[in-house]
């Protein structure tokens, strides 16, 4: 038993030396903790972050938490033990970012949150030293959708709309839905018929929309979806029922959504700039490592993509 412990310690020590040896060569090692690779847009952001890291000679490691808060914490712990120089994290749950911040602060390494904002409503000066956020204001996506809807359908005739909500525990789901309502509640002719969570999934978007069609029939004029996957599911349900009059909008502008907009099926998607966020996060992590002055919050603006400007986003 004692021998075993000794061996174990030697192995650990050896690993530690190796890691520090790598650090000494001035190549940084950065860990990217993704919330869930099943979320298509997350893989887009991660892809840009990775590409930027490769171009700049950064040693890159990543993990997937599968939307499990505890799993993510363990993965970050493992990153720190592994000796990463900086952390980039898409938090599983924005309200549970505290332990992650503590871990990074304790290890004295920069921490960059990306895409999901744990500091919504926090003043920039209250954000701890060495912690950053890169992303977009989730509520903007909802506002963009709603404003475009008003532009399309006007403020005169009655409009019934429904919201496909993402996973209830996600800040993005709550904020985007909030953005929709914030705008539309100002117009008395807009009536919120229903809102239901479809957990970001296409099949659920489909089933829920089928049931809405039964419940509301022609009363339903628009479906605002928290993401493209659910919006595409809604489209299938609408088309199967011969309803091409219903306005459908998503968020993320995934490839399928681009195609759908080009084909004139999907009315709009809101582009979170995946490239801006992924590269931005990596840039800020590197800047912080080099001791440059960095703002705690970097906002990457959303873009509303409609049939008019879709050409700009297709290569």
């Amino acid at each position: 038993m004692k021998k075993f412990v000794l061996m174990f310690l030697i192995v650990i020590a050896a690993t530690g030396m190796l890691v520090s040896a790598v650090g000494a060569e001035e190549t940084y090692k950065i860990g990217y903790a993704c919330n869930n690779f099943n979320d298509t847009f997350q893989t887009v952001i991660e892809g840009y972050a990775k590409a930027y890291a490769m171009e700049n000679g950064v040693e890159y490691v990543y993990s997937d938490a599968g939307e499990d808060i505890l799993k993510q914490q363990d993965q970050i712990k493992a990153f720190i033990a592994e000796g990463v120089d900086a952390l980039i994290v898409v938090p599983v749950d924005t309200s549970a970012a505290e332990p992650i911040i503590d871990m990074a602060t304790e290890a004295k390494i920069p921490l960059v949150f990306v895409n999901r904002n744990p500091f919504a409503g926090v003043k920039p000066e209250d954000i701890p030293e060495g912690v950053y956020y890169v992303g977009s204001e989730s509520i903007d996506a909802g506002i963009f959708q709603a404003e475009y809807l008003v532009k399309l359908l006007g403020t005169e005739k009655p409009v019934g709309y429904a919201i496909l909500v993402g996973m209830l525990s996600n800040e993005a789901a709550v904020a985007r839905t909030e953005g929709n309502k914030q705008v539309l509640s100002k117009y008395p002719n807009y009536k919120l018929l229903a809102e239901k969570n479809g957990d970001w999934q296409r099949d659920q978007g489909l089933t829920i929309t089928e049931n809405w069609l039964t419940a509301f029939g022609d009363e339903l004029n628009a479906i605002l979806s928290n993401n493209d996957e659910m919006a595409l599911g809604a489209l299938e349900a609408l088309e199967a029922n011969g309803r091409d009059d219903v306005i459908v909008m998503g968020v993320d502008l995934i490839d399928d959504a681009k195609t759908a907009i080009l084909e004139g099926r999907l009315d709009a998607s809101v582009l979170q700039d995946g490239k801006g966020q992924g590269e931005g996060a990596m840039k800020i992590a590197l800047a912080a490592l080099k001791g440059e002055k960095v703002d705690p919050i970097t906002m990457i603006p959303y873009v509303l993509v409609t049939p008019e400007n879709i050409k700009d986003y297709v290569e």
Binding site: N38, D203, E236, D256
Partner: peptide, 12 residues
């Protein structure tokens, strides 16, 4: 067929 597409996370 229903979704005319498939996602790897389908049917969890």
């Amino acid at each position: 067929g229903r979704m005319v597409s498939a996602q790897p996370g389908l049917a969890a």
